[in-house]
Amino acid sequence: MKRAWQIMSLAFVAAAVVTLIASFAYPYKDRLGPGPGFFPVWLSLITGGLSLALFAQVTWSRKAPFSPGSPLPEDRAGTVGIFIILGALLGSLVFLDFLGFRITLFLFLVFLPIALGMRNWVLILVFSLLGSFGVFHVFYYWLKVPLPMGVLGF
C-alpha cells in the first residue's frame, strides 16, 4: 500500500506541474483584477505542495496514514471480472454512436452475463432485449430522451 500511495502522490505532483505550466498561458491579471490564470496558478501550487507533503509523510513518517495490505485484488476471478466490465464499457463507448443505443446495449447485455458465468440463455435473451430495446422505447418514445440511432437507423 505504501508504494501505491507514493506513486499516487507523485502523480499528483506531476499533474500540478503540468497544470501550472499550462496556467501561464492565461493572463494572471487584467485591468479589472485577477485574470483567468490567477486561480489555476494558485491551485496548481497548492496541489503540488500538498502532494509533496503527502509523499514525504508516506515515505518518512512513522505514523503510516494507510492501512496495511495490498491494493491489488485478492484473487484472480476478481481481477478478471474487473477487466471484463471495463472491456464491455470500452466496447460500448466505441460502438454507441456507430451502432446506436439498441444494438450496442443489446450486445453489451448479452456479453456481460455470459462473460461473468451465466448460461441461462433464455433469461439472458429476455434480459438483454428488455435492457436494450425495452429501455430505448421507454426513454426515447415515452420520456423523450434523445438516444443514438446508429448508422443502421434504429
Binding site: 443505443f101 446495449l105 453489451f108 447485455l109 456481460l112 452475463p113 436494450s132 429501455v135 438516444l147
Partner: peptide, 19 residues
C-alpha cells in the same frame, strides 16, 4: 444475481451519461 444486476446498473450509467 450480480451477473444481471451489475450490467443493468451499468446500462443506466451509460444511458444517464450519454443523455
Amino acid at each position: 444475481k450480480y451477473q444481471y444486476l451489475y450490467p443493468g446498473i451499468l446500462l443506466f450509467c451509460i444511458l444517464g451519461a450519454y443523455s
